[in-house]
Amino acid sequence: MNDQLTARLAGPPPQPGIFDELSKREIRRAMLSGIAIPGYQVPFGSREMPVARGWGSGGLQATLSLVGEDSRLKVIDQGEDAGVNASNLRRLVVSHVGCEEETDTRHADIIQSRHRIPEQPLRDGQVLVLQVPGAEPLAGIVRDMDEQRRMHAEADYAKMWVRLYEDVVHNGLITAAAGYPVLVEGRYIMTPSPIPRWDVPKLDRSEAITVLSAGREKRIFAVPPHTSVVPLTFEDRPFEVEHTPGAACRLCGSADTYIVQEPAADGRFTTWVCSDTDFCRRRRTGDAPAPAQPVQGETA
């Protein structure tokens, strides 16, 4: 009797593969809770995945719970669709669900990423799934997890601010780079995945849903569309994104995108390319919006 009930609740027999329907449902519930309470870390029962924890198992579970056969899935690693991890994860999901592979950000329904948010502004209807290696912004500040939860519950974030204060005292500026702490909708402090500062403003009032999933820590959190996401900083220390004066992508010439160094022929790190390969390709083919304003600063 109970077995039958469980089977009915579970829906159609699971497809052969890596993730059962009940687990997906649990994760969707966790995502909905996360969307209802922006920035709040919702615990979930993280399953074993055919990738090691810490290698995108959280993002994979979120993506598997969201994709359908007609979804178009984009997976990037460091902005690249062709990276080894990105390709493997994308193939894994496609072979499991039978959805479509996509590299053009504009056409993707679901975008899974770890280190970047695409340069192309996301639109209504898209879901950005970020793989989070460390979900707890207070982890380096207080060790006791009960105390971390209490601080979140009471929005008692003075110790985070003291951390930032100490950073400025010792280093002259807030040194946090990847995963810069943000305040979501004026309530919860959240650590995004290790995206550069460059990408942090893209989370603010985004048209898309952002789902952040930490497989190892078994927590999911989310930023619903049109939600304020403000990087923590002092009023007299404006938040600044990465910028190298004079540097531009050697392929598309963009200076208004996030660019990374690459080894030049002589082995010295002197040339730059766009991190977002899809956007770079479109800039080169004239299929992307031109830079909003002339590149500022002179060539170094």
Binding site: A158, K159, W161, Y165, V168
Partner: peptide, 13 residues
């Protein structure tokens, strides 16, 4: 800075 930020001070200077 702890008690100050706790009550909302956000100006480093």
């Amino acid at each position: 800075a702890d008690p100050l930020t706790a009550v909302g001070w956000r100006h480093y200077g």
